[in-house]
Amino acid sequence: MREILSSQEMGITLALFFYVIGEIVYRKTRIPLLSPLIVATILLMAYVWVIGIDLSVFLTDLSGIHVFLGPLIVSLAIPIVKRIQMIKEHLLPILVGSVVGAATSILTVILLGNILGLDETILASILPKASTTPIAIEVSERLGGIRAITVATVVITAVAGAVVIPLLIKIFKIKDPIVIGLGLGATSQAIGTAKALEIDETAGAVSSVALVFTGVATAILAIFI
């Protein structure tokens, strides 16, 4: 029984199962805090706790899923090419917004992190928080950060942005879909893009492009750190 409960196949099956549940929950509620990744993660953590399997064994069971992170980043070229017409029309604002998004996020981490006295490992882990998760993981590991903390930070940032920014957009009566798309995409990645799409189709398109550009900008800016 233990052998069935703990194997790579079982790990991936469970991850898929809980992710599907997460997708259903998100489709019904549209609450950023209940995004499929968060729901699946919490359910998997609960599973580890209830069944009482060794965490490091379970993480090895899940590790097969990691293989796709690299190909996933490479594939980010596809949405860019598909929206190349829109990008050409608004190239300058998109570039400016993405670089400003990446730079302000990194600067906030460095400035506040040093004021609050965070150690280097934590700083490195949260530094690429504005970037899309796969690129953030690469940057964080290169700077000596901890992968898990990076993912948690990126997800919390994205959820916070997806909750707070639509409110700011309403309060400040921002109507321009380019500004909305960049405001969400350059700060809250995929979860923000889902929100942007709910607001306006063009905003969603801009946001999906901005999240890739912000990731690349983060990777490039990290060279100088």
Partner: peptide, 17 residues
Amino acid sequence: LIANMSFFFIPAAVSVL
């Protein structure tokens, strides 16, 4: 891969434990 991007972060997210 892109449409289901966040699925691939599950191992890292669980390792938060």
